[in-house]
């Protein structure tokens, strides 16, 4: 199985362990990720906040390269996914926008979570599980752009999505219900209004704790970074201490598959998940 792969800018930096775990998991499942040649940034929220043309043309350039290649395009970043889907709609709808870049909508655009949860992989995933995530209680955190707005993302369940929950159960873990699946982490406000980030992420961490979850599972580099890197600051502000590991879903897959390198990925987190996993006998 071959697909075009759009890593996105953060996989080269802050979300390095996401990229590493994706590579290992896809290799285990015999999926060949072909990195889109000369891919460029999707523009993220800065493009759509600044200039309409940029917000369509920057993703369109990548979509056009992928369409020429003729394979479906998979991206692990919720923001890239959202910008690609929005551009896809803008370029192919009735009143379509012309940015001088050809794209006819002949390929599918998928987020990595949606892709790996396809029925065709379910048997392979079950076969690969060597170490079920027994006793690991996790809350699924989808965030915003993976699901909203549904007329852009083509998501069926935007208020109570299920893909991550099903995956966690399939890997042998316990998916714990909580009401904050699709709440916002504040995204790029982390640089400009960190006080807002503290408040939003503090609420998420509190709710995860109230749900008695051991950890939070994400599918977005920005959600993971906001939740993982600010726990000390939020704790200092509120006079409490947080120590909740924030996993990428592919890290949990790699852990269950017994992939080499798991310890290395987990070592990149600011809240070290290894003590938790050791206490559960999972590493």
């Amino acid at each position: 199985m071959k697909v075009s792969f759009f890593p996105g800018c953060s996989l080269e930096g802050t979300a390095r362990e996401y990229g590493e775990s994706i590579e290992a998991v896809c290799k285990s499942l015999d999926i060949e990720l072909q990195e889109l040649s000369d891919w460029s940034c999707c523009g993220a929220s800065s493009a759509h906040s600044t200039n309409e043309f940029l917000s369509v043309a920057l993703p369109a350039r990548n979509l056009s390269i992928a369409e020429r290649k003729g394979q479906d395009l998979v991206t692990p970043c919720a923001a890239c996914f959202s910008r690609f889907k929005a551009a896809e709609k803008a370029l192919t709808c009735e009143s379509k926008v012309d940015v001088g870049i050809p794209f006819q909508g002949k390929i599918n655009i998928l987020h990595m979570l949606e892709f790996l949860c396809r029925e065709e992989f379910s048997e392979d995933i079950e076969k690969k599980i060597k170490r079920p995530l027994k006793n690991l209680k996790a809350v699924s955190y989808y965030g915003c752009l993976l699901v909203r707005p549904p007329r852009v993302t083509d998501t069926e369940h935007w208020e109570d999505p299920q893909a991550l929950d099903i995956l966690i159960s399939r890997l042998g873990g316990e998916s714990v219900f909580w009401p904050y699946k699709t709440e916002c982490c504040g995204g790029s406000l982390v640089l400009t209004r960190v006080d807002i980030i503290h408040r939003l992420n503090g609420r998420l961490l509190d709710m995860a704790r109230e749900a008695e979850a051991d950890c939070i599972v994400t599918a977005c580099p920005l959600c993971q970074a906001n939740l993982d890197t600010r726990q000390e600051e939020i704790g200092d502000k509120e006079g409490v201490s947080y120590d909740i590991p924030i996993f990428y879903f592919t890290e949990l897959m790699g852990l269950a598959f017994g992939n080499k390198g798991v310890r290395k990925w987990l070592g990149r987190h600011l809240v070290d998940p290894r003590p938790l996993l050791e206490s559960k006998g999972l590493i």
Binding site: S45, H48, S49, C144, L145, R148, P149, P150, W158, C184, G186, G187, S188, L189, I196
Partner: peptide, 8 residues
């Protein structure tokens, strides 16, 4: 934060 909850 452009979370799209309002639009949705």
């Amino acid at each position: 934060a452009a979370c799209e909850t309002c639009t949705t």
